[in-house]
Nucleic acid binder design. Structure first.
Lengths: 243, 243
DNA sequence: TATGTTTATATGTATGTACATATATTTGAT
DNA sequence: ATCAAATATATGTACATACATATAAACATA
């Protein structure tokens, strides 16, 4: 395993250290509970200051990935979120697992200038076009979710792909892009005119709104996804266990 | 507002600074979008080093309370309430951690015959009374969530407890009941007349509905909780990482 | 044997310093 | 008046250093 830091790189040292740590702590010996090398030695080995190393460590500690104990050491936390694999199912897999047959009503691909939120998430300017994917899906008797996805140009999608295949199969097999981290925000909203039209409900009717931010293994943004779910047709379930 | 740090205290300076910042950023001028004093000046004013001040700031930044922009300044982030499933915090702890002052509008305790869903979850008959706790809580300017909780008789609550204390403190310290597993179901709904009245919105307005099933260390049911959140006042955030 | 006491170890706290870099404003040249 | 360059401002990065403190293990004492 690479345990080195490139001092000539323009990537800040603490970010390199953070990345390195993220890889390091995936090592079974650490997930099994072994303590990481101590800060002073590790800093010396990486040829960075302890302060800089701690900057990286802090981030992982705040994220709950690492646990530090004064006088003892630092080890990998036992994750408290147990619904991981469940969360990683794609939409179609999720529905299949629930025994819901899915019908695709609309599928529209386009290249667009991103709005500020998207550009900001991707860390690009609003002048650079991104791939936009809109999908309306649901049960045979009617649609119940409208998705809008944007993809980072880095991913390499052309827009010519066969989007009837599961999305993450395309990304992983054809583009070697592996989703690793997902942040979601779930809230309730009143449907606007546009969404109401798509979901065949009245404007003002409640919908579940789900924003999803997907990152790759280097924590670089891949996908920005918005989902508008008809109320009562979708329930989000979470299971979490205390350590 | 007290803007001072006690150098003689045994409380670490960065913790004092953190606490001070949490109070500071509740000031309407900051929640309205004004930038905080710059780090160098603020550090000087508090008579601590910039490094120490940044230690405190970092924490709030990681929590999403503050947003820093290089060359510009630091300001309070968009103030929608959010909940992190991984943290396993109680409602009041959650809000406190985000520096949101919580007002309790109503608190009602009663013994009732459970409906079928509750009885079924508790694995008891509908003939055995259970403790019901109703709470209306929110910001000073108005309520944003209505909770209904039912507790399993096994827990031993009498109904005479001081429910102004955090609930899980009561359960853990006084009744030695430790919540270990939580299953949640989140969906969107239209507010009914009753809930609309409580939340001071119109019937039919969208709400976020959150069912929560809590189990103890032996996976025995403890609490059945229903939460009705005003739309746009509550965002549920989930972070999941693939192994 | 049991119980304090020291010591080794690792993280926690705190400061001072220096320079880099992103952003907005001001200044200056054309 | 316009555009480019300088500058002011604030956060970002990075280091060296020093001492405090919690924990466990080794040691010494009664």
């Amino acid at each position: 395993m690479k345990l080195r830091i490139d001092h000539k790189s323009h990537v800040p040292l603490h970010l390199q250290a953070e990345e390195l740590l993220r890889n390091l702590i995936r090592d079974p010996q650490y997930t099994d509970g072994k303590f990481l090398p101590n800060e002073v030695d590790l800093a010396k080995q990486l040829a960075i200051s302890r302060t800089t190393l701690r900057q990286a460590l802090n981030k992982l500690v705040y994220e709950g990935l690492l646990i530090r104990k004064k006088g003892i050491g630092t080890k990998v936390a036992e994750s408290s979120v147990s619904s991981k694999s469940k969360n990683w199912l794609s939409f179609s897999q999720e529905m299949k697992a629930r025994g819901i047959p899915i019908k695709s009503f609309e599928l529209h691909v386009s290249w667009v200038y991103p709005d500020e939120a998207v550009a900001n998430f991707f860390e690009i300017t609003t002048q650079k076009k991104v791939l936009k994917l809109e999908r309306l899906r649901g049960r045979p008797e009617g649609p119940f979710v409208y998705f809008v996805s944007f993809f980072h140009p880095r991913v390499g999608l052309t827009g010519e792909e066969d989007f009837k295949r599961p999305l993450y199969e395309i990304l992983e097999k054809d583009y070697l892009v592996i989703a690793n981290l997902s942040k979601e925000e779930i809230s309730a909203k009143a449907a606007g005119k546009f969404i109401a039209g798509k979901l065949e409900i009245e404007p003002g009717n409640p919908i579940l709104f789900r924003k999803r931010f997907v990152y790759d293994q280097g924590d670089r943004p891949i996908e920005y996804n918005l989902g508008y779910y008809k109320a009562d047709s979708f329930v989000y379930t979470i299971e979490s266990r205390r350590e």
